[in-house]
């Protein structure tokens, strides 16, 4: 069996030859390197441009809104109940026959602030306010001016999902607000009531504020139902033309 055992001189020879070859081809290699770099930069910029300009990328992904209710149990300070509210299956889109069912329920989750344990003993109701568009919302001086109001909706516990509460609904494009009220039992060791109003948020690029009727204490937001056509691709999809 032949064993290849390169000596130092052999290595030097090989290196020398490689260097000569490299020197001969340096200008071509450098030129080719520059071209590759330029192509890479163009490719990255083009990809970013396409991704950033895509309607699906522009569409903001809203987190749900949350508030913390302080609760006193056995005179121990620092306890809190986290209430999170939003629409199910976000981002939400208004119903459009043949394209989207608009099923985006009012979703509430309740948990212990310190541990994250779900809290499954709450009796919750909601009043719902709907404004068809921003103009209607901006001209309103109270939630009573909403285009449509529904009161006393039961926000019931979801079977098998402790801490999750839901009021099913089919939404339209527009601005939704909810007054959530009721009682939350903190693991049977204390009770706290909630009565708080929160409105959905419009995409940031629209630059409009929808918080004027919100009860103080909410952080984050959930998205207002948008027109489902904003996520169509291609935008001139002829197959959808006859449906709407």
């Amino acid at each position: 069996m032949m064993v290849w055992d390169p000596t130092m001189s052999m290595r030097r020879e090989v290196n020398k030859k490689m260097n000569e070859k490299n020197n001969t081809n340096r200008s071509w290699t450098q030129s080719r390197g520059r071209t590759r770099s330029t192509i890479s930069v163009i490719a990255i910029v083009t990809t970013l441009a396409i991704v950033m300009s895509s309607p699906t990328t522009i569409q903001p992904a809203f987190a749900h809104a949350e508030t913390i209710l302080p609760i006193n149990v056995d005179d121990q300070p620092g306890r809190g109940i986290v209430v999170v509210i939003g629409h199910s299956n976000e981002p939400s889109y208004g119903a459009k026959p043949g394209i989207h069912d608009g099923m985006h329920g009012l979703e509430v989750t309740i948990s212990d602030n310190a541990t994250g344990l779900p809290i499954g003993d709450a009796q919750l109701r909601a009043d719902k306010y709907y404004f068809a568009d921003l103009e209607s919302f901006n001209s309103a001086t109270s939630v009573e001016d909403a285009d449509e109001i529904e009161e006393g909706i039961d926000v019931g516990g979801v079977f098998g999902e402790t801490g999750s509460y839901l009021a099913r609904q089919i939404v339209a494009d527009g601005i939704y607000g909810y007054r959530l009220y009721g009682n939350v039992s903190y693991f049977e060791a204390g009770n706290v009531t909630i009565d708080s109003t929160i409105f959905c948020a419009l995409p940031e690029d629209e630059g409009e504020d929808t918080t004027k009727f919100n009860t103080p204490g909410w952080s984050g937001s959930f998205g207002c139902p948008q027109d489902i056509d904003t996520i169509a691709f291609p935008t001139n999809n002829t197959a959808l033309a006859g449906l709407s």
Partner: peptide, 11 residues
Amino acid sequence: ASHSFEAGVQG
């Protein structure tokens, strides 16, 4: 004992 806070197994 209180078992109100035991999350248990989901699903």
